[in-house]
């Protein structure tokens, strides 16, 4: 059971400003049914350019509904410039805090607000626009969004990033990339975590190299393949030659534009050694499996 504050419970059971404003000045929509939460925010300005009325409709859990309700309360009476300064932290603080795993609800509120203001200013942008390149394909989160929650909320771990914007909460295939974003922004602040085996760059013993290859496949490659119904099996390692076999649906997965072999090779070169060469073991490929290179 989540530990919700009385404020969260109040705004969930008695949400303020539910509905949709007709002929709204700004409309912002974020999230989707697939993601598990979605918010449609509408507002109307008064003659002084202040938000006279704001209403919401939300699909989601108790904290998604409560944060939406608070958002409408927070922005009423504000100018658009003032409203733009409302952060996800303001929303969470107003509620007396949210469970860590629910912080993404407050971020959704802030994104809906931005989308609605952009809609008012630009006229056309209704949906929350994706900026940057998509890091988390499961939830469609870009590097720009990840960087922003890391900066605004001073995040230092992948788990926190997942809690705040969902990135990394699906197959887990992007954890490496999220880690790099955190390291880039937080630098020194990120607690140096001792990897169980030496990372790339050091001279590896054969056993260390084999473990690192296995670990890289387990953590960096398999989750992404799994998410698309595929899988990978490590068949053999001889020196720098790594033999793998692909299973399942990888012929139809999103990565089909590259050969799977290249994807694996790139990851292994990045995490283990530049000299790695990957070969596909065609003999052990399951019957009926067509791999389009």
């Amino acid at each position: 059971m989540w530990e919700y504050t009385d404020k969260v419970r109040d705004h969930f059971f008695n949400p303020r400003n539910v509905g949709e404003i007709e002929n709204a000045d700004g409309v912002g929509e974020v999230g989707s049914l697939a993601c598990g939460d979605a918010l449609k925010l509408t507002f109307k300005l008064d003659k002084d350019g202040r938000i006279a009325d704001a209403k919401f409709k939300t699909f989601g859990c108790a904290s998604a509904i409560a944060t939406s309700s608070v958002l409408t309360e927070l922005i009423r009476g504000k100018t658009l410039d003032e409203a733009m300064n409302v952060t996800n932290k303001d929303i969470a603080d107003y509620l007396g805090g949210l469970p860590e795993q629910k912080m993404h609800c407050s971020v959704m509120g802030r994104e809906a607000l931005e989308a609605a203001i952009a809609n008012y200013q630009g006229g056309e942008v209704k949906k929350h626009e994706l900026e940057g390149h998509v890091v988390c394909t499961c939830f469609g989160v870009t590097d720009v969004e990840i960087e922003r929650v890391v900066r605004e909320n001073d995040l230092t771990t992948v788990e926190q990033v997942t809690n705040y914007c969902k990135a990394g909460g699906g197959c887990g295939g992007c954890h490496g990339e999220i880690e790099k974003i955190i390291e880039r922004i937080q630098g020194e602040k990120v607690a140096p975590h001792a990897p169980p085996v030496p990372r790339k760059g050091k001279k590896l013993t054969n056993i260390q190299k084999m473990q690192l290859i296995q670990q890289t496949i387990n953590e960096q490659i398999r989750p992404a393949l799994r998410a698309h119904g595929g899988n990978i099996e490590l068949i053999d390692i001889e020196g720098d030659k790594v033999t793998v076999a692909f299973r399942g649906m990888c012929a139809q997965c999103h990565l089909a534009e590259f050969t799977m072999k290249d994807v694996v090779e790139t990851k292994l070169r990045e995490f283990v050694s530049e000299d790695i060469v990957v070969e596909e073991d065609k003999d052990s490929v399951e019957e009926g499996h067509v791999h389009k290179g």
Binding site: W2, F12, D37, C61, A62, A64, K102
Partner: peptide, 24 residues
């Protein structure tokens, strides 16, 4: 069109215990 956790909390107010396959 609605989410399981929210349903559970509403049920909880009536003392009804159930569970959900919702992510939340």
């Amino acid at each position: 069109y609605i989410e399981g956790e929210a349903i559970l909390l509403m049920l909880d107010r009536f003392g009804i215990c159930a569970s959900s396959g919702s992510a939340c």
